[in-house]
Design a protein around this nucleic acid. Structure first.
Lengths: 212, 212
DNA sequence: TAGATTGTTAATCGATTAACAATC
DNA sequence: TAGATTGTTAATCGATTAACAATC
């Protein structure tokens, strides 16, 4: 509840889930939600929900729970959903293009302001409202507009190189979709998101269940 | 090291990272890797690496480390990389198409054997080597071939419905890319992978650093 | 042999869950 | 009032890190 205490990482990762669910409840016209109801919907325990929300600047009310309008506002604020984030995507392969064309990002405050690749055959092509630009011109763009987030959507071998280009351009937050760990300075935050790893996780589970 | 003890979840999620790194080392002709070397490359501690690998059926050697060939083999085995996994994708939007067209899955033992959508305008169109099929015909396909993994790549509102169709079709492992928690029976494993949530996590970090 | 590195036990750290007094 | 639900403390659980004897 106190404003400046650090929110633990596992909690941060759950906040977007709360936000989505609460927005749904509001669309249905529901004004109050108890920790138990939220927990059931998201596959958590009510205890976890209360602990998590205790980090937010918000008070629940006994017998009623949390006011959905207030909860949505608080979550939007802490997740920066009301701030415009400028995002560049490096790599205009299938995945990079799909992201550029995916409308949901714009809806949630992520503006794709650049789509880069090294293949001249792609330069100038439009995906979503972004045009493919030579990756060498990344730093030029970064001089003009402050880039908040860089998405790495290139093959693994090129990931580290791209990461360094993003860091040089002053980007402090990187989403790494490449199948490779990247090394960055301490003041840069990296979040990994790899569909391949998730698939392999499932493959492991399938393997163990098959044996029994 | 013992064959049948359950491997903790955090360890499982790191195994794919080890595999990728070891494969790289082998391509470079490197035959031995110490826990410290692996840790540095992947941003872990040597202690974590040794603990993780102690779950594998493998022995390191003092002074040399782990034999990369052996380590790769063991990791491939435990992650089921040598088994063909039959995958269906439900949702032929930008993301679903990008996945179907993404060659890296086939390389790693994931065969996209079906791409489904509800939009008749898409039926018959080819992405990668998959043709878009009416989602109502999902169960038909499942009768013919054993589907191991289902990928949900539809908008959030449709996610639960699709999850149920997959469960009905006998799919026991689901990768959920939709922005919505899905409820499934106990014997079905769900892994969530949402780029939006990862972006929001970064947005949170940006928000907190901005304040200081 | 001396030194490096494993495998494993123990210590620490942190997250989740349980419990319950306070409160509406 | 009685009952439901919060906010918070304490207990539990599990993962990571540290430490070190064993070993090559």
């Amino acid at each position: 509840m106190s404003v400046m205490e650090p929110v633990p990482h596992p909690v941060i990762r759950r906040l977007p889930k709360y936000l989505v669910h609460i927005q749904e409840l509001r669309e249905e016209g529901i004004e109050w939600a108890s920790s138990q109801e939220i927990a059931d919907a998201l596959g958590l325990t009510s205890s976890t929900v209360r602990q998590d929300l205790s980090h937010m600047d918000l008070k629940g009310i006994s017998k009623k729970g949390y006011e959905t309008a207030q909860l949505e506002a608080v979550l939007r604020k802490v997740l920066g959903a009301d701030v415009l984030h400028r995002v560049v995507i490096v790599g205009a392969g299938h995945l990079g293009r799909a992201l550029a064309e995916h409308g949901a990002f714009a809806e949630r405050g992520f503006d794709i302001c650049g789509l880069f690749d090294q293949d001249p055959g792609l330069f100038g092509k439009k995906f979503g409202h972004a045009e493919v630009i030579n990756v060498e011109r990344l730093s030029e763009l970064a001089e003009d507009v402050k880039v908040d987030i860089g998405i790495i959507a290139v093959p693994g071998q090129a990931a580290q190189e791209v990461a360094e280009a993003l860091v040089d351009a002053g980007v402090k937050a990187i989403l790494n979709l490449a199948y490779k760990h990247i090394h960055v300075p301490e003041d840069v935050t990296v979040v990994d998101a790899r569909i391949m790893e998730s698939l392999q996780e499932l493959a492991y589970v399938l393997g163990t269940s098959r044996k029994r």
